[in-house]
Design a protein around this nucleic acid. Structure first.
Lengths: 210, 210
DNA sequence: CTTTGCGTTAACAAAATTGTTAAACAAAAA
DNA sequence: TTTTTGTTTAACAATTTTGTTAACGCAAAG
């Protein structure tokens, strides 16, 4: 047989993810993807049938991986504060690789609201349910001001994700170099943790700090 | 003369803004815009020359309006807490109308990084500079834990904007109806204020609460 | 060596989208 | 009424993009 098909398929997916989720090119054409991967455009149809099907697959895979890397900490048997610390760490680190993933999902969802529903249908456990117990304990202790689990999670995810999403905008507004923005994002891990618990994040989790 | 050209131009802009910033259809075609406005597609070229030029104009106008409605409070001579309260109120209210504006800017910026620079070049005063003094006073009082003005602003904007951006996703995850999500967003005004100052937002600003 | 089958490619076809233009139209001005 | 001017429309042209197909290549199996 000719070449190894599996490798080519992986290559195309890899490069497509870079275009969509890393570079934020929401409307990357099949030609652009093929160029990025250095293969003939027809191969995209050979392996994925159509551009849309490839997008579905990429989203499916990538969301699965993100969930495994981030949400996993919330279902662990770590202490509440450790859960949150590791979650922040993981979400920011993940976002440094694929800053535009959320942006992509949001746009796709606007275009086709039903698509996101099928993705969400798979995990019917809301992340807010995973931290409710621990959160309420902290509230009872007086360590955190009263807040619902839903609002708490939205605050948390918002503070982690927004600066990743809006990277290019914030970077321009604040006149930061790429390096400065990277540093800013790593600082944020501690800032977010501190804004919740009013104390510094355990040093262990600042592994990528600059 | 035929019809009133100014009115038609306004109509097209209005409907285009709805498609782009309200419905989140980032790639709305000139045909879709024309349909939405109930006019012939050629009129879009008659009034705006090209799709791209229309986009630039829409962004320019809309960002200008948003700035006037939100950032204005930060430059006022209100007290720090009042500034923040009104800012939160204005940003969330604005976002209820145009939830996808940020999403749109982010995508456009990824496609053409220089475009956003020209927009930002106009107001060279960073919003973080506008609140630094007041923030530092609160920190000195011990009312807010130490945090840089940049991180404080990013946290604030993130908590306000992210749930608007991610509306369709969060709504699906949490299984909320449109009405429930609206209520959730209005609740957030107080939640955000409380998470910063550890006290309820003055009732005055919860004008649209449910 | 020949055959078989997957992987790859170039060329083609079809659809969607943008931009242009000349003609039609409607109302005010002459 | 006729002219003029700005607006609107349908038809056309050009470009972009997706999807298909038939031929080619190459390595393993027979």
């Amino acid at each position: 047989m000719g070449n190894d098909g599996v490798q080519t398929e992986l290559l195309i997916k890899e490069k497509a993810k870079i275009l969509f989720f890393q570079k934020g090119l929401l409307n990357a054409t099949t030609q652009q993807i093929a160029d990025e991967a250095g293969v003939n455009r027809a191969l995209i149809h050979y392996y994925f049938r159509s551009r849309d099907l490839m997008l579905d697959l990429l989203l499916e895979e990538t969301l699965q991986e993100k969930k495994a890397r981030t949400r996993a900490f919330l279902v662990s048997d770590l202490s509440f504060r450790e859960k949150i610390a590791r979650f922040i760490d993981a979400v920011v680190d993940w976002g440094l690789n694929y800053p535009y993933l959320d942006n992509f999902i949001i746009s796709e969802t606007a275009r086709n609201p039903d698509k996101i529903k099928s993705f969400c249908a798979k995990d019917n456990v809301k992340s807010s349910d995973l931290i409710r117990e621990g959160l309420e304990a902290e509230i009872k202790k007086g360590a955190i001001a009263p807040i619902s689990a839903e609002h708490f999670m939205v605050n948390l995810v918002a503070m982690c994700n927004y600066p990743l999403l809006a990277k290019s905008v914030l970077q321009t507004i604040h006149g930061m170099t790429d390096a400065a923005y990277q540093k800013f994002l790593h600082e944020r891990k501690n800032v977010i943790y501190a804004s919740i618990f009013n104390e510094d994040m355990p040093k262990i989790y600042e592994k990528n700090g600059n």
